[in-house]
């Protein structure tokens, strides 16, 4: 019954050195482990510079990790020869933040997507057009759009083409790197709706990278909160974003803009994400955490809470050793 996960990442590390300060904590990903199950939508949130894009790029093989394993459908990426890697890329596709940078301005949508189909032989020759019309419908594009060029499309339509190209490869996993942050709210709503419908119909797994907690809450069933290359909190969306335990998640959530602002004081972080403030071996959030104290100079262990909720914070660790932590579990009813 329990199938193996589509994506399994173990102790993934990818650091970017700063030659002038070799002792400092580097940007990138530091020993991250997680799984994405078949058909699951997992969100990865964090501020710019926290390493979320690096993680996404490692997963699709655009960057070579320094250490750790990335296993996709039981195949370790590191074990693949360059030739096999090329055909293996079919399994994981990526959609970037700015669709205009990934579309070819000199190719019509049809030619562009056909290239992806040919590349991996996902559709027999001669059947491309029919399949493309199906895909266009799936991502909410009109059939006429297939013969247009990128400059004749709106931002939302371009992003749909990028999603369509990814789907044309019939991947098991699509990494979406901030797919809607360059779009207007109304267009964002359209694309998010499309993604949600798609996910239901096609069943592809998504790794959804974003800095917008509201968007992630809307589309993802599980979230991971990343800070300076480590995951500080993860678990089901309604728990992590409904009743966050980590001070960083709480602050991130409080900072999110809302139509109806929350009254009262908000937990907030000091300053900005600055690498220089973090010493080796300490909790990465310490420099900005409103609750930091002496003990945070050593990195906290990961505490397991009910329902697959994991938190890397001393506060959660303390609460857990005192006995079962009392977290309000939201009722299963979906709020109207």
């Amino acid at each position: 019954m329990t199938a193996s996960p589509v994506l399994s990442v173990r102790k993934l590390t990818k650091l970017f050195g700063d030659r002038t300060r070799p002792e400092a904590v580097n940007v990138g990903v530091r020993g991250v482990s997680f799984d994405v199950e078949g058909g699951e939508v997992v969100g990865l949130i964090g501020e710019s510079g926290c390493g979320k894009t690096t993680l996404g790029r490692c997963v699709v093989g655009l960057q070579k990790p320094d250490d750790g394993h990335i296993v996709i459908n039981d195949t370790d990426l590191a074990s693949l020869s360059p030739a096999r890697m090329r055909t293996f890329r079919k399994a994981v596709q990526i959609v970037f933040q700015r669709p205009e940078t990934c579309l070819n301005p000199r190719m019509s949508v049809f030619t562009f997507v056909k290239q992806a189909m040919r590349n991996f032989d996902t559709v027999p020759r001669g059947h491309e057009r029919a399949r493309m019309i199906e895909l266009a419908q799936l991502v909410g594009l009109k059939e006429e759009a297939l013969d247009r060029f990128p400059h004749q499309l709106s931002g939302g339509e371009r992003q749909r083409v990028a999603i369509m190209r990814a789907l044309a490869c019939e991947p098991s996993l699509i990494v979406l790197d901030e797919p809607t942050s360059a779009l207007d709210v109304s267009v964002q709503a359209q694309v998010l709706r499309t993604l949600k419908d798609l996910q239901r119909e096609v069943g592809t797994s998504f790794l959804f990278i974003s800095h917008d907690v509201a968007v992630v809450r809307y589309i993802c069933s599980r979230v991971m909160v990343m800070y300076l290359g480590v995951i500080v909190e993860e678990g089901p969306s309604e728990i992590v974003l409904g009743h966050p335990v980590h001070p960083y998640t709480q602050a991130l959530l409080a900072a999110a803009p809302r139509i109806t602002p929350k009254p009262g004081p908000h937990p907030s972080l000091k300053g900005e994400l600055v690498l220089a403030d973090v010493g080796p071996g300490e909790c990465p959030v310490r420099a900005r955490c409103p609750m930091a104290h002496e003990r945070c100079r050593t990195a906290p262990p990961v505490t397991q809470l009910p329902e697959g909720h994991r938190v890397a914070c001393w506060l959660a660790a303390d609460a857990a050793t005192d006995g079962p932590i009392s977290i309000q579990t939201p009722s299963k009813k979906v709020p109207q």
């Binding site: 709210v185 964002q188 709503a189 998010l192 709706r193 809307y218 999110a256 809302r258």
Partner: peptide, 22 residues
């Protein structure tokens, strides 16, 4: 109304109603 309905809500996730057309 359309603009308000298009904004995802952090606290109470609900279905988004996108504005049609441009």
């Amino acid at each position: 109304r359309g603009l308000i309905a298009a904004v995802p809500d952090v606290d109470q996730p609900r279905e988004l109603v996108p504005l049609i057309g441009n």
